[in-house]
């Protein structure tokens, strides 16, 4: 079994790609890599260390995500029976700035108003794209979202808060 630096780097990149198959349990339109939850993958001849960070400290999805990571990593080709460790880190603190423009677009298509630092609250209704919206509740169905209503089409929607 060759475990040169090249092989290691290739396997790390490959594992990252596999982890992109794990959807966020609460926002299935995004995967855990583009959410910024996966912070790093380090491969050694005997082990794989995956570091993850929570969006919010009490996010109950973290335990499920860690289980998914172990399942996906240990099932990868070329994994060769290494041990898998998932480590939870808090620093640097997770921020919505890590979401790419593509991820934000898909959030909106899914019906969730994406975070946008240029405005306070949602920029527009994700359904009809009208700009006038009203805050219903600062807290929504998950810690990362607030609840709004569109003043044009009257539809309720969730807004991914800037953090």
């Amino acid at each position: 079994m060759g475990a040169g630096a090249e092989d290691t780097a290739a396997l790390e990149a490959q594992l990252f790609a596999y982890l992109e198959n794990i959807p966020d349990p609460e926002i299935p339109v995004l995967n855990i890599v583009e959410m910024g939850i996966v912070r790093g993958v380090v491969v050694s001849p005997q082990s794989v260390l995956v570091t993850i960070t929570p969006t919010y400290m009490g996010c109950p999805a973290m335990d499920f995500i860690a289980e998914d990571v172990v399942r996906v990593v240990s099932g990868a080709p070329d994994f060769n029976g290494r041990t898998v460790e998932v480590k939870l880190v808090y620093s640097p603190a997770w921020t919505t700035d890590w979401l790419s423009q593509d991820a934000r677009n898909r959030l909106e298509e899914y019906g969730i108003s994406p975070p946008d630092r240029s405005v306070r609250g949602p920029k527009r209704c994700p359904h009809c794209h009208a700009p006038d919206t009203k805050l219903v509740s600062e807290f929504g169905s998950t810690a990362c979202k607030a609840h709004y209503r569109c003043l044009s089409c009257d539809e309720p929607f969730e807004h991914f808060k800037c953090l």
Binding site: P54, Y56, M57, G58, C59, P60, Y90, V136, S137, E138, F139, G140, S141, A143, H147
Partner: peptide, 20 residues
């Protein structure tokens, strides 16, 4: 209902911080 969700969400954050 909104405040029920708010207070328990805040509680969830506190429990998350407590765990850390």
């Amino acid at each position: 209902i909104e405040e029920d969700i708010a207070l328990t969400n805040i509680g969830l954050d506190q429990i998350g911080q407590a765990r850390a």
